[in-house]
Structure formats: structure tokens, C-alpha cells
């Protein structure tokens, strides 16, 4: 135990969950549906890497672009804050995914029933990293409605990965997705008390 002598100290801890999926699938909407603040947005600068650069003092302006990521916040208790991060829509910003996934409790892969294949990269990414994830099938009104089993088959998921239908706009629906994720994370960690898988 640490007893801080300074007037101020940081005794709280922060954890995060990643919401991933293809372009326009409803990631920001899902973050916003449960966040206690409207989704916040921040940007990261990206520069093209040039091989063999050993002089970093130069202020040459290389090609620079920005990638935006948005996030929400849930104060679990005064000592614990949960952040929800929506991944950047474009898959090419993989290193951003790395930073987002590092240390995450788990991830939600949002699948779009209009374009199921758009979440393949996210599924691959989390499978490869061994990060526990659930698949939320965001049901757009105008889309063909798959069954959970059809989605599971199409994504070739491990039977232990929970799949559930959801509406990213709905608070209760998003809560259910996150609860399912946490139960999955806990059962993967061998913790009792969490209901199995789905």
C-alpha cells in the first residue's frame, strides 16, 4: 500500500475496452450510448517512415496526416475509470490499433449486417493478439437480418466467442454487449462467478 504524502495523488486506476469494426458500423454510436460524457475525439499525427533516417533533429516536413479516435468514459467508482475506445475506421492505421489494444480488458467487434466482411480484419486482429472479444451484430433497419449462427459461421469464429445481436444506439443493448464481454473475459481468465460464455 502506498500512502501519498503529496497534497494530490493519483490513486485511481483506469482500464479500457476497445470497440472495433469496419467503417461506419456504429462504433462511435455505441461508445456514446453508455458514456457519461459525449464521445470525445482526439487526433494522432502520422508521418511516413523513411528508411535509414538517423537524424531526428531535422524539422523536415514529411507527409503528415491525422487519424482520429474517439472515446467515452464510465466512472465505475471513485477508484476505477473505464474508457471505451472506438477504433479509427480505416484499417490501415494498424499501429493505432496496437496502442488501443495494449492492456485492454477486451474488445467488442461490431459487425455490420450490410457488409459482414468489413469486420474480418478486426476479428483477425484480436484473435492473433489473443485479446478476448465478443461480436455484436449491429442491426440496421434496412439490412438483411442474420441469425447469430449465420454470423458465427460467416466469421468462422471459435465456438467460445459470444455473438449477440445489438442496437448500437440503445443503452440497454450496449450494456448487454459489455456485460457479455466482461463475463467472457472472466471465464477465459478462469474466474468463477461469471456466467459461461453467452
Amino acid at each position: 500500500m502506498e500512502s501519498g504524502n503529496s497534497e494530490r495523488n493519483v490513486s485511481a486506476a483506469a482500464v479500457k475496452i476497445v470497440i472495433a469494426g469496419g467503417f461506419g458500423v456504429g462504433k462511435t454510436t455505441m461508445v456514446g450510448s453508455v458514456s457519461e460524457v459525449p464521445p470525445l475525439r482526439t487526433e494522432e499525427l502520422i508521418t511516413e517512415a523513411s528508411a535509414g533516417v538517423d537524424d531526428l533533429s531535422g524539422v523536415e516536413s514529411k507527409h503528415t496526416t491525422t487519424v482520429a479516435l474517439d472515446f467515452g468514459r464510465i466512472t465505475i467508482n471513485p477508484q476505477l475509470i473505464l474508457y471505451l475506445f472506438g477504433t479509427p475506421g480505416q484499417d490501415r492505421f494498424w499501429f493505432m490499433w496496437d496502442e488501443l489494444a495494449r492492456g485492454a480488458l477486451g474488445a467488442v467487434v461490431l459487425a455490420d449486417t450490410r457488409r459482414l466482411d468489413s469486420c474480418f480484419p478486426a476479428v483477425d486482429f484480436f484473435e492473433r493478439r489473443g485479446l478476448p472479444f465478443v461480436v455484436g451484430v449491429n442491426c440496421f433497419d434496412d439490412a438483411y437480418h442474420y441469425t447469430v449462427d449465420e454470423v458465427r459461421m460467416a466469421l468462422d469464429l471459435d465456438p467460445s466467442v459470444p455473438v449477440l445481436l445489438c442496437d448500437a444506439r440503445g443503452r440497454e443493448s450496449t450494456k448487454q454487449v459489455l456485460i457479455t464481454l466482461m463475463q467472457h473475459v472472466m471465464s477465459r481468465a478462469g474466474l468463477t462467478g461469471a456466467a459461461s460464455g453467452r
Binding site: 453508455v34 476505477l80 473505464l82 480488458l105 466482461m182 481468465a189 474466474l191
Partner: peptide, 11 residues
Amino acid sequence: PHVLQAVLDGI
């Protein structure tokens, strides 16, 4: 486990 349970309960 304590943190995981707290997050689950909080949600």
C-alpha cells in the same frame, strides 16, 4: 479478478 468484477458490476 477484483478489477474485472468491479467493471462487470459497474456496467
